[in-house]
Design a protein around this nucleic acid. Sequence first.
DNA 1: CGTACGTTTGATGCATGCAAGAGATGCTTC
DNA 2: GAAGCATCTCTTGCATGCATCAAACGTACG
Lengths: 232, 232
Amino acid sequence: MQEMLQAKTQEQANGNQGSLLDKLRKLVLSGEYPPGAPLPELFLAEEFDVSRTPVREALKQLENEGLVEIRPKVGTFVRIPTRREIVELFQLKESLEGLAASLLARRGPVPELDRLKRNIEASEGAERRGDSAKYAELVHEFHWTIVNGSDNSKLREHYGRLMNQLAYHRIVLETVERPARMRASIREHQSVLEAILEKDPTGAELAMRGHVNASSLAAARIAPESPDVAGN
Amino acid sequence: MQEMLQAKTQEQANGNQGSLLDKLRKLVLSGEYPPGAPLPELFLAEEFDVSRTPVREALKQLENEGLVEIRPKVGTFVRIPTRREIVELFQLKESLEGLAASLLARRGPVPELDRLKRNIEASEGAERRGDSAKYAELVHEFHWTIVNGSDNSKLREHYGRLMNQLAYHRIVLETVERPARMRASIREHQSVLEAILEKDPTGAELAMRGHVNASSLAAARIAPESPDVAGN
DNA sequence: CGTACGTTTGATGCATGCAAGAGATGCTTC
DNA sequence: GAAGCATCTCTTGCATGCATCAAACGTACG
């Protein structure tokens, strides 16, 4: 489901039904083409049975999204953010999600609130069952629900770009959050929802920011060292 | 070295350096191509003495930046945000600049602090002289100095995208801020800088957000009605 | 043996040709 | 005169060819 939301956001961004861009993005985000891997236009063109031109355009878009690096006259490579960029992105994430929670709290009764409530209940179930995969999915949905519930399309856009750049580390985050922070995280989700239900924008923002910050710390701690793609 | 100029239009003589993308962006942001204006690839290609291919790539980038709208098989048009989007962007602006101020406050003594101090002094001078153009420029610089001083490249990136989309309305904001909010704005700038100098991230964030919010309200109030270019 | 340098290679960057679609135009018909 | 329809034009979307350039390779030389 969250895949749908993300895809829709991206399509809004490029206004194109271009499946090629989506396919390439998916391959990069999924790690099928690992960080540092070259993405020769001709190879991709043959791979997807199109000419180099649309491949080129898609790659330029991906560069703009921060997912690949185009070195002029040399080639395109899958990009992995440096540790520093990871920290920067998490700072942004905290701010944007705080804004989203605040905006949602202002909105009064909207269907998103029920969804959040059900999400938390499902998360508790997943935690009890030890179903960490389901739990990770629910966490993802929780955050996206709040962002979407903010009813701010530009915020959605920027958040989507940000999360794409963090996608590679989302796995890490989930891996590290699973054992240690499951219960704490659920409690924090509850606090966020409480503040939203009380129509307390400031409280919701602070709760959200605290939650994101706590999660980020764990992830940033184990962020992999930044390999210099060009160095090889 | 690049003096060998092929007799070209004023556009090219104007921005000699910079990529085609930058030139096009400038023309859109400056309003030279007004909102709703069509941007045919062939026309631009001849205008800049290149082929359609690089023009196409640049236009796709601009679409990704939210500055133009590409209607498939129809054409590319200069995009103007709807009033709603303006409000959304200002909400984001407040959040991002708040984050920037907070981060800067954490950083200790950096050259940006002196720059901010000098900026405020110059602003006071401009205000006394009634030099509204200079004042507007200084306001712009103040905000960018804080964002750059945050030492967060991703924040800079997102903020730049955001401000590009607001560029068209920045003029409006400056126009409306000039008579009414000059002095108040300067005081708010001072408050922001004070909090930063005191290394008070929370205070700096709140001061910044209050300031941005106050400025935004005036601008949003007179934001032009959204002409639906696409007719969709 | 190590270094400097000319050559080769492989990829990109751009120009151009062709086809297809959306919208405008004008003709036909009633 | 108005509505419906075929056509026509202008645009984009994509394929392909050629020039260009960075990096790798191999060779000659100190």
